[in-house]
Design a protein around this nucleic acid. Structure first.
Length: 831
DNA sequence: GGTGGCGTTTTACC
DNA sequence: ACAGGTAAAACGCCACC
C-alpha cells in the first residue's frame, strides 16, 4: 500500500480478462509520473414504460439476466440488474441499471433490449473515459490523495507496468479530492513543442528535411543537411531514417506531458508516421512503446487526430479556433498571425524552395526558421495553458479531448458531467436520420433595426447581458421542459411563424436541469468575474473566460443538430423572446423621448437628446425593474458621435455597418470594409482614416482633402504592391467551385506554378492592367509575385471610391463625380 | 454588347 | 458535421433586348 498525491492528465483504458481498466497518466506534486489503474461499474439504463407492474418488472429483469453475448471474440453476459427511480428528460421514471463486463458490449446489449416494457435504452454511448470520469469522480487536472498497491514488475494485468515508462504505477484502492481551490497552484506541465520541414506538402510524399524540438532549456534541430556556420542547436545525422530515430530518442528522453504542434494533426504527426512507415523506423513515442494512432473522430476537413499513448499530443490550432478565434484580431489562424497577436513575435523570414535549390549558406536560415516555429508554438502553449487548464477543470474532459473539441462539445461535456446532481439519465446522441431532419429546419433569428443614415451626436447604447442564456434561464426553455400541450401555469413563448402558421410553444414551470445548469454557469461566471476583479491573475481570468464562453454558447448548443439536448421548439422560442425583448426595449426607449438609431439582436443605440448621463442611467434602472427573471440590460457606453451609412445600392440604411467614437476618443467600427480582410489594405486604411477624421471633429472637408491625396498617389502608381493585395480564403477544393471568382483563378495559378497554399488557405492576388480590354475582374488577376502594374481604374473605382463614397454621401458629397471622370449610369444619377 | 436579376461566395455582427 | 441566424457586398452567370 502506498499513499500519494496525484493529478490526472491523460486517460485511456485497456481490457484484461474481458474487463475494462482505466489507465490514468498523471503527476504527483514532486513532478514524478504516476500511472493509476482503476476500474468502475459498467452499465447502461433501460427506461421502463409508465404502467409496468411489479410482476412484469420482475419478469423483465429475469429475462435480461439471461442475456448472453458471443461477439468480437468475447463471451459475456449481463452481470446484474437493479431497479432505480431516476429522471429522464426531467420526468420521473423507473429504470433498470444493467451491469455488464465490458463497455464495448453495451451497444450489443442495448440491441437485445428491444423488449416490450422497455421504452428507451440510454447511457451506453458516452465513451469509456467519460463514463469512467462520471463514475469515479476522478476528474482531469484536479488534485487527489490516492491510496493503492504499487505494481512493480508484478506481472499483474499482463505485466502492464513493465512496459510503461512511469515512475510509479498504482492499482487504485481509495481516492479523495484534496483541493478545489483556485488558489492552489496548478501543476507545471513539461512541454515539448515540435515542427517539421519537408520538400513536399502532400503527406509523406517528400523527405522530412529537419525537425525542431523546443522545451524548457531545450532547443534542437535535427537534420541531415549540413549547416554552413556552427549552430549549437543543430544536430546533424546521416539520413532521414536516423533523423526519425533521433526525434523519437529526444522525445522519449525529455518525456513531456504534452507534445505540442501547430496544425500537427493535419501535417507534422501524420508526415512523421508516413515517413517512419516508409523507412521502416518504429515511431514508438508512446509511454508503452506504442506508435501514434489516428482517429477520424472530430475530423474537420477530412483530417484525423493523432494520439500518442501517455503523452498528450496537442494540436494548438484547434483549441485556438474553438476558444479564441471569435475574440481575436488576427484574420487567419496561421502560426505567424496568432503569434504576432499573442506573443508579439512572428515567424522568421524564409523563402521556401525545393531543397535541391537551396544554397549552402541558406540552410542556416532554414534551420533557424524551423527552430523558431517550435519556439512560437512553445510560447503559445505557455500563453494558453492556464485557459486550457481551466476549461478542462470546468468541462471535466481530458486535455486531449478538450483540445480537439468544438463549442458544442464543451457545453455537452459540462452537462454530462453534471447530470448526477439531477438524478438524470443521459440522453443519447442523435441518429444519422435525425441529424438530417434537424438540418433541414430553419428558425427565424434575431431582429435588426434599420438605421437612418447620418452623422449623429451624443449617443447612448444599451445591451442585454448574455441575452440568450438569460432567456433560457428566465423562461425555463429546453428540450426536457417543453410541453407537447399547453398546461395551465406554464411558460408561453411569443407567437412564432412557422411554415406560414402562427404557433406558440409551452414550457413547464418546474425548473429543468438544462436551464438550471445554464443558471449555474451564469452565476459561476459572475462569481469568477468578481474573483478576477478582486484578485487579478491568469487563473481567475482563465476561469472567468471559460464560463463566459460556455455561457455564450448555450443557445447555439440547443439549436445545434448534433446535440443530445437539441430542441427546435426551445430554439425557436429563445429567438422569439430575443426579438420580443429587443423590440420592447426599442419602444420603451422611444417612449422615453429618445430617437432610436440602431439595434441588433440584443442592443439598442439612441440619441441622448439633451438628457444627462445620470438621466440615461435612471432610464436603464427603470427598464431593468420591468424585466423578468435574470434578464438584465446594461449600459454599453456613451458616444460623442456616430456614423451610419446607406447600403451600396439604394438609399436605405445599411444594418450592421456603423462607426462610433467614445468620449475617450476610442473608435468602435463595425461592418465597414475597414474590418473586412477581403478588401485591400489601401482601401481599408483609407476608410479608417476618413472615418476617424469625420468622427473626431465632424469635419468632412479635411477628410475629402485626404482622399484627394490618396487618389493622386494611386493615379501616379505610388502605391506598394502589398497595399493593393487582396486576400481571400479558399473555402473548399478548387474543383468544387461553381462560380469562378478572382480568388479561385489566383488559386489555380498557384497550383499551376507549384506555389503552396498556406495552412490558413489564404489566397493573395492583385488586379493588374491588361493589354487587351477585358471586362471580367478574374481576367486581370495576378499573383503578388508576378510582374505587372496594378490596374488604376479597378483600384479607384472598385476599391478606393466604394470604400468611402457612402460616407461622403452623408454630407451630400458625391466622390465618384469628383474623382472618377466617368459618370455612373446608376438610376439615381438621372433623377 | 450592355444590363439587370439571380445565385454563389466570403466575411462580418451579435 | 461537429454553436446559431442576419446581413452586406462582390462577382460570375445568363437571359434578354
Amino acid at each position: 500500500m502506498i499513499t500519494t498525491d496525484f493529478t490526472p492528465i491523460d486517460y485511456d483504458y485497456f481490457d484484461f480478462e474481458g474487463r475494462n481498466y482505466a489507465r490514468i497518466i498523471g503527476r504527483d506534486k514532486q513532478g514524478k509520473r504516476v500511472c493509476v489503474i482503476d476500474s468502475c461499474p459498467i452499465y447502461l439504463w433501460a427506461i421502463l414504460s409508465d404502467k409496468l407492474n411489479e410482476k412484469k418488472i420482475k419478469n423483465l429483469i429475469e429475462e435480461i439476466k439471461e442475456i448472453r453475448l458471443d461477439i468480437k471474440g468475447r463471451q459475456t453476459n449481463v452481470e446484474k440488474v437493479e431497479l432505480h427511480d431516476k429522471n429522464f428528460l426531467g420526468k420521473k421514471v423507473q429504470a433498470l441499471k444493467i451491469f455488464a463486463t465490458n463497455y464495448k458490449d453495451l451497444h450489443d446489449i442495448a440491441d437485445r433490449l428491444v423488449l416490450p416494457g422497455i421504452e428507451n435504452r440510454r447511457g451506453y454511448d458516452l465513451g469509456f473515459v467519460t463514463h469512467y470520469i462520471v463514475e469515479s469522480g476522478i476528474s482531469p487536472l484536479q488534485w487527489y490523495k490516492i491510496e493503492g498497491d504499487v505494481l512493480d514488475n508484478s506481472g499483474e494485468f499482463g505485466g502492464i507496468d513493465q512496459n510503461l515508462d512511469s515512475d510509479l504505477t498504482i492499482r487504485l484502492q481509495k481516492h479523495k479530492k484534496i483541493v478545489d481551490d483556485i488558489k492552489e497552484p496548478g501543476f507545471a506541465p513539461k512541454i515539448l513543442a515540435y515542427d517539421i520541414e519537408s520538400d513536399e506538402f502532400q503527406i509523406g510524399k517528400g523527405e522530412i528535411l529537419m525537425v525542431s524540438l523546443v522545451g524548457e532549456n531545450f532547443k534542437k534541430v535535427i537534420t541531415f543537411k549540413k549547416p554552413h556556420k556552427k549552430l549549437d542547436y543543430v544536430e546533424v545525422v546521416k539520413d532521414e531514417a536516423e533523423l526519425l530515430e533521433r526525434f523519437v530518442h529526444h522525445v522519449r528522453k525529455v518525456s513531456p506531458d504534452f507534445l505540442v504542434g501547430y496544425f500537427s494533426d493535419g501535417f507534422d504527426l501524420p508526415y512523421l508516421k508516413a515517413r517512419a512507415t516508409h523507412l521502416k523506423i518504429p515511431l514508438n513515442l508512446g509511454l508503452d512503446d506504442s506508435q501514434p494512432r489516428f482517429f477520424r473522430a472530430g475530423a474537420g476537413k477530412g483530417l484525423g487526430t493523432g494520439k500518442i499513448s501517455g503523452i498528450v499530443h496537442i494540436d494548438l490550432m484547434k483549441f485556438i479556433q474553438t476558444a479564441y478565434a471569435q475574440y481575436m484580431q488576427s484574420e487567419t489562424l496561421s502560426l505567424n498571425e496568432v503569434s504576432r497577436e499573442f506573443l508579439g513575435d512572428s515567424k522568421k523570414d524564409f523563402k521556401f524552395k525545393h531543397s535541391s535549390k537551396i544554397k549552402k549558406e541558406e540552410w542556416d536560415d532554414y534551420f533557424e526558421y524551423n527552430l523558431h516555429d517550435s519556439v512560437l508554438t512553445y510560447g503559445l502553449f505557455q500563453k494558453f495553458w492556464p485557459d486550457m487548464q481551466e476549461f478542462v477543470r470546468v468541462i471535466q474532459e481530458p486535455v486531449f479531448d478538450l483540445s480537439r473539441a468544438g463549442l458544442s462539445r464543451y457545453t455537452e461535456s459540462y452537462i454530462l458531467h453534471n447530470l448526477d446532481k439531477f438524478n438524470e439519465i443521459p440522453e443519447r446522441r442523435p441518429k444519422y436520420e435525425e441529424i438530417g431532419e434537424r438540418r433541414n429546419v430553419r428558425v427565424e433569428g434575431a431582429f435588426v433595426f434599420e438605421p437612418t443614415p447620418g452623422l449623429y451626436e451624443n449617443i447612448a447604447m444599451f445591451d442585454f447581458t448574455s441575452m440568450h442564456t438569460s432567456i433560457i434561464v428566465t423562461h425555463n426553455l429546453s428540450k426536457s421542459t417543453f410541453l407537447k400541450k399547453k398546461e395551465k401555469n406554464s411558460y408561453e413563448s411569443p407567437e412564432i411563424t412557422e411554415k406560414g402558421k402562427k404557433v406558440k410553444y409551452y414550457f413547464s414551470k418546474k425548473p429543468g436541469f438544462f436551464p438550471e445548469l445554464m443558471k449555474e454557469i451564469f452565476e459561476l461566471r459572475k462569481k469568477a468575474k468578481e474573483d478576477y476583479k478582486k484578485n487579478p491573475n491568469i487563473t481567475t481570468k482563465a476561469r472567468s473566460n471559460a464560463f463566459k464562453l460556455l455561457s455564450a454558447s448555450a443557445h447555439g448548443y440547443v439549436a445545434f443538430f448534433g446535440a443530445r439536448y437539441y430542441s427546435h421548439e426551445a430554439s425557436a422560442s429563445i429567438l422569439a423572446f430575443v426579438r420580443k425583448y429587443n423590440k420592447e426595449t426599442i419602444e420603451k426607449v422611444e417612449k422615453a423621448g429618445h430617437k432610436v438609431i440602431f439595434g441588433d439582436t440584443d442592443s439598442v443605440a439612441f440619441l441622448m437628446n439633451n438628457k444627462t448621463e445620470a438621466d440615461i442611467k435612471k432610464l436603464l434602472e427603470k427598464l431593468n425593474s420591468e424585466l423578468p427573471g435574470i434578464m438584465q440590460l446594461e449600459l454599453e457606453d456613451f458616444f460623442t458621435r456616430g456614423l451610419w451609412v446607406t447600403r451600396r445600392t439604394g438609399t436605405i440604411g445599411a444594418k450592421k455597418k456603423y462607426a462610433l467614437i467614445g468620449k475617450d476618443g476610442k473608435l468602435k467600427i463595425r461592418g465597414f470594409e475597414t474590418v473586412r480582410r477581403d478588401w485591400c489594405h489601401l482601401a481599408r486604411e483609407l476608410q479608417n482614416k476618413i472615418i476617424r477624421l469625420i468622427l473626431k471633429d465632424g469635419n468632412e472637408i479635411q477628410a475629402l482633402k485626404y482622399l484627394k491625396e490618396i487618389v493622386k498617389k494611386v493615379k501616379q502608381r505610388e502605391i506598394a504592391r502589398d497595399e493593393i493585395t487582396i486576400r481571400t480564403m479558399l473555402q473548399k477544393p478548387i474543383e468544387d467551385y461553381k462560380a469562378i471568382s478572382p480568388h479561385v483563378i489566383a488559386a489555380k495559378k498557384m497550383k499551376a506554378l507549384g506555389i503552396p497554399i498556406s495552412g490558413a488557405n489564404l489566397i493573395e492576388y492583385f488586379v493588374a492592367e491588361t493589354r487587351e480590354k477585358k471586362s471580367l475582374v478574374r481576367e486581370k488577376v495576378k499573383l503578388p509575385e508576378e510582374k505587372g502594374e496594378y490596374n488604376i481604374e479597378y483600384y479607384l473605382n472598385r476599391q478606393i471610391l466604394p470604400a468611402v463614397e457612402n460616407i461622403f454621401q452623408v454630407f451630400g458629397i458625391e466622390v465618384r463625380e469628383i474623382f472618377s471622370g466617368k459618370k455612373q449610369t446608376k438610376l439615381g444619377d438621372f433623377k
